[in-house]
Structure formats: structure tokens, C-alpha cells
Design a protein around this nucleic acid. Structure first.
Lengths: 194, 194, 194, 194
DNA sequence: CATGAATGAGCTTTCATTCAT
DNA sequence: AATGAATGAAAGCTCATTCAT
């Protein structure tokens, strides 16, 4: 196999991405320099020409993870439930496009591999999604757009449960159909309309 | 401190439990023979007097995990929603009693540590809980006890989302209150009562 | 070759001593875990059962070095030149008994291998010998026992030069003969006797 | 900073000199291609455009060392003690001008870094200085210019001890003052003048 | 002339495991 | 039943060196 020569910028991106993949597929113990090297067609030693150590690689992987999960499409100005729906559908699409990688969003594998500093970053990234959901629901409730007979947190869990359930589903349903069902669940019960 | 000499049976149990704890607290990379030995007051070498190798230890840990998650209190004969409520409340109690250990139920840490065989067993254990929920909901719908305007899976995700959300909550609400909220969410909308 | 089993205490001593030897014979770059292991009949990995890391090994080697160079025979109460002569002869004997190891006393090889903390310790050990010499000479001068026509330091250099020269000599002369010559050199010139 | 492009000859000299400096300051383990490159403003790989390998670099450093220690000022025709005094003062000046580098003269650091061949060269270089001293002393004794009551070697050690002591002195005394003291020490004792 | 990318060999260290006591 | 000493394999990382640009 001809020795691949890539620019350092490309390599760094490639390595970070491969690290995320390995982490998702084989867990923290599967993320070794040798395995990572094999993944990108390098020897283990060569990795350290691009990153100072494994910690830096994980940090770059966390950056990458953050980039994926930072929802550029989020429109804060929108009507709260529309905003939440947009987030939900967009995030579902993401989770399906990168199933191996984004499964990391649902457990602590990335947290486990990371050094304390990055650990907090990962937690913060995940917390942001939860906060966005809760924000939208809070605003929606103020506008009477969601049911008032259960605590907001119950609604948040419903949304997050659906997110997770649909993403991990072996035969995932269309995101907007799922969102429609969520809407049905969290909307004020019928009688209120009258 | 006098060297502790325990019967083999006790030791095996103690080690398996400690393995679960380590796995939950420090992840797959934190489960080393030395750490595990320290946890139970043995030297690493002594572990292998009780188990043939680390794989066997993880297998025993999976047994233990299965024992915890096998709900002895489940009463199949009960009315479906009552059965589901009983399961929910009981499981919540369990998750709070063993927070460190049972966090394993929510991610793939145990899967990661396990050899392929045990991996499937863990998946099966987790699948059983999901199946129980779905069973109850299916029966309940047949009896008209849950809303019919969303797919059963949406209801399942709602229950599981609440289970997870409540268990991971920093200041967990009383299980029966959570269950009451879930009931509200999954019950048929108001108008149907007439 | 039958696997040698030694008590940890013995091993530690053996390893520390071998480290000194390697350092003296092959220099800082020759002191590798593998080489050291070979020297004592162990695999490199086994060394770390007895010492936490290479730093600890070097530290133990410095201890050993210190023990050799700490002159238990020194008698502060003696007449200064007798005390210095005793030191000189005793130290010469030592340097010949352990030529490989004690060559370390004459250059910075040990300093180079050591971590900053131990580095200072080595310097202190070497400084002690120099101080002892200077002390004796100072006292001797006060008693008119050494010549007064050159600075004390010049006398100190004479003693130290002879120490080094005699120790490194391919065919080393008897220590007391050397000492006699030094005495001749540093004594007050003839005329004083009258 | 614009990439420095130097002629090969200049580079070789620069690198050899930097190697000596590194060796003196950081020891054999501090002489790495990367460190050496940094010292001269090159990348490690670029060093090997000028030298075939590290061995060649050390060899060039030994050349350099030899050049420094080859005393162009030595005048064999002079009166022996004058010749020795000239050597002493000149060498002292050298040691002070290049303290970092010439400290190499006093221990085996350079020997340690060198391959066997160069090792012998270094030893030969150092032996030359010793031989010069002994030659002068031998001639001086034949002329009755030095004391006859101690072996020549003792006088040689005195000179060398002073050389070393003065060079390593934290606050070095003027070379000719030191030489005067040496003269005092090695001259025939008073009474002989009559 | 100089560099950036890559490598193989070797280093320190960790880890699961074996064996004699 | 438990340990202390030892090991082989593999991990993370450094280093001299090669090669294409």
C-alpha cells in the first residue's frame, strides 16, 4: 500500500474523526494509538507528529463532537414549539447520518475517555441540548401551547425519550412523524379548545 | 489489619459486585485487576484464585446485574397499567438505592467491558425491561386504558424517558408522583371519558 | 536459566547497585530498564514491581552512592592533618575497591541521570568531601601545621588533585605513600623546623 | 523569521559547536536531533543534510573540542616552567571563555556520547594535556627547577588539581595568581637556595 | 538548502496472568 | 485462601532517520 501523505490539517481532522468513531464502536478501551493509526493508515508513532499525546487527540475528538452537536440551524426567534420541532427533526437527521459517532451523545463513553477538563466540556455540550429543550417548553407553556397538567420536566423527558428511542430504533421512523406524535402527547388535552 | 479470609462463595459475590461498582464509577478502563483487588482487600493475583480470568469476573458481574434488574416483584396477572406502574416505581427505587451500579443500565459501559457472549446477555437483560413496558402498554391499549392517538412506541419512549430522567435527576422526585405524571401523559385525552 | 526469586529487599539493593554500575560504565544513556533488568537477571517489566519508576531507581542508586561516600571512619576529634590523612587513605581504598562505581564521584554522570531533587543531593554529597578537606586544612593552618605561603584553596586543590590522580592511575600507588607526598607538599617549608 | 540558509561549511561548524554546548549543558541524553536542530534554527531532519548521522555530528564535535584544546601557543623551546606557566594561564583563560563547553574536559560526558573510535580520540586529546604537563615537569626537575622530594606525579596532580579547581571555582581567581601559587608549591623548598 | 510527513526501533510503564510458597 | 515475585504482551511515547517536495 502506497504510503499516504496528507497535510497535517487534513490528518488532524481525520484522526479526530477516527477517534470519535473508535470510541463509539469499541469504547474507551478500544481507542489505542495502534488502532487509531490503523484506522487512518498510519503507524502509532506517526500520530504523535500531529498531536502531542492521546489527551490532545481526545480533546480534538471532543471539538469535533461539539461541532456536530452545535445546532447551527437553531432559530431562537421562532415560536417555541416550532423551534423545538426544528431542533428535534434536525437532530434526528444528524443522529441517523452519523449513527456510530453520535451514539456517544447517549452515554458516557466520551466522558470516560476524556481528561477532566474535556470531561466537563462534554457534559456542557450535552447539557446544552437538554437546556434548549427545556427552554422551548417553558416558553411554550407560558404561551399555553403545552399541557399544564404535568410538570415541565415530564414533558422534557418525553421529548428526550423520543429522541433517544427513535434514534436507537433499528428501523427508525421519519423524524417529522415522530415529532407529530410528541406534539400530540405534550399538547393541552382536547377539552381546553372549547 | 488481619488478612481477611472469606469463603470462596462470598468472595466471588464480593468481587463481582465490586467489578460492577468500578465499571460504573470509573468505566471500562478503570476495571483493572489491581483496582478490583484493592476494592475487596485482596492483591490482584488473588483474584485469579476465585475466577479464571478477567472475562469470568465480568461475566459474574453481568450475572449480578441481571439479578438486580430481574424484577421479582413483577405480577403478570395484574391489570396492565397497574403492573407497569408497579414496575416503574419498583425500578425507580432500585435505581436510587444503587445509583452507581445501575447507571450501567443507561449506557453501554457494561457492554463495552464484556466479551461478545456476555455482551449479548447484557443487551438481552436491557431488552427485557423494554419488552415488559411494551407488553403492558399493548395490553393496556387493548383495554382502552391508554390513548390511541399515538403509536405504542411513542408511549414506550415516554415511559422510558421518564425512567431515565427521574433516575438521573440530581434531586429525584418521588417515584409515584412521577408515575402519576406519566399516567396523565399516556391516558386517553379528556373527552373520551364520557 | 532457572528463574531467580529474591526477596524484594535484596532485589532493591541489587538493582540500585546495578544502576550505579551501569551509570559508571555506560553513562546515563546506558541506564535503561532493559539493560538494568539484564544486569540483575530480570525482565524490564519486573523492575517496576520493586520501584515505582526509573526515577526511584536512580534515587536509590544515589542513596547507595551516598552510603559509600559517607565516611563512617572520620574522627572529627583527631588532630586536623591526621584526620585529613585518615580520610584520604580511607577514601583511596574505597575508590580502588569500587573503581567502576566511584568513578562517578569525579564527573557529573550521576548528576545527569538524576532528577532535580536527587541532583542536588548528589552535589551535596560531593560537596561534603570537599568541605571536609577544607575544614581540616583550615584547622591545620591555625595550628601552623601547613604552609602559610599559599591560599588554603591551593592546598585543597593539591589534595583533591592527588586524590583524583591516584584513583585514576592505571597502576595506583599505595595510598599512604601518596599521602606522605601530599604532606610534603603542603607542610611549611624546611626552614621552619629550626 | 526568514528561514536561514547557510553554506554547508558554516552549518557544519555551527552544528558541531552546538552539539558540544548541548553535551556540556544537558549531557548525553540532552543531545537529541530535535534539540540540536532547535539550537541552530533547523528542523531535526535538516541536520542529516549536513551530517550522515548523529555519530558524524559527535565526531565533528570531537574535532571542535580537539581544536580548542590544541594549544597553538605552546612553545616547546621555552624554559620548561615558563612553558608550563604559559600553558596553564592560557588554558585557564580558555576554560573561562568557554565554561559550558570546556567543562567537558573534566568528565567523561564527551566520551559517553562518542562512538568507540571517537572515544579513543577524546581520551588521546585529554592525555596530551597531561603529557605536556608531565614533560615540562620532567624537564624542570632535570634543571633543578622543581622540588625533588616528591614524585613527579605528585607535582603533576598538583598542577592538574589547581587547573580543575580554579576552572570550576564559582568566583575564579586570576590565572597568573593561581600559577604563582602553584610555583610556590612545586618549587624546591627554601633551604636549597643556598 | 530546508522542510513536512512518515517510520522502525527502542524506551518506560501498565496489565493480566502464572507459579512457588 | 492469599501473597510475593516474576513475566509477556501491549500501551503511550521518543528518537534518529528516510524520502518526496
Amino acid at each position: 500500500m502506497a504510503r499516504q501523505r496528507l497535510s497535517s490539517t487534513e490528518r488532524r481532522a481525520q484522526i479526530a474523526e477516527a477517534a470519535l468513531r473508535l470510541l463509539a464502536e469499541r469504547g474507551a478501551r478500544g481507542l489505542t494509538a495502534a488502532a487509531l493509526g490503523a484506522e487512518v493508515g498510519l503507524k502509532d508513532a506517526s500520530l504523535f507528529k500531529h498531536f502531542s499525546d492521546m489527551g490532545a487527540i481526545v480533546a480534538a475528538a471532543v471539538d469535533r463532537f461539539e461541532a456536530w452537536l452545535t445546532d447551527s440551524l437553531d432559530r431562537p426567534e421562532a415560536e417555541p414549539l416550532a423551534r423545538l420541532g426544528g431542533f428535534f427533526v434536525h437532530r434526528q437527521a444528524l443522529l441517523r447520518a452519523r449513527p456510530e459517532i453520535l451514539r456517544l451523545a447517549f452515554d458516557d463513553r466520551l466522558v470516560e475517555a476524556a481528561a477532566p477538563t474535556d470531561r466537563d466540556r462534554v457534559r456542557a455540550i450535552l447539557a446544552r441540548s437538554r437546556a434548549l429543550i427545556l427552554d422551548c417548553l417553558t416558553a411554550a407553556r407560558a404561551a399555553g401551547a403545552v399541557r399544564a397538567d404535568v410538570p415541565l420536566e415530564a414533558l422534557q423527558w418525553t421529548v428526550m425519550g423520543a429522541m433517544r428511542g427513535a434514534a436507537l430504533h433499528p428501523d427508525p421512523p421519519p423524524p417529522d412523524a415522530v415529532w407529530a406524535d410528541i406534539l400530540t402527547l405534550i399538547s393541552p388535552p382536547d377539552g381546553d379548545d372549547r
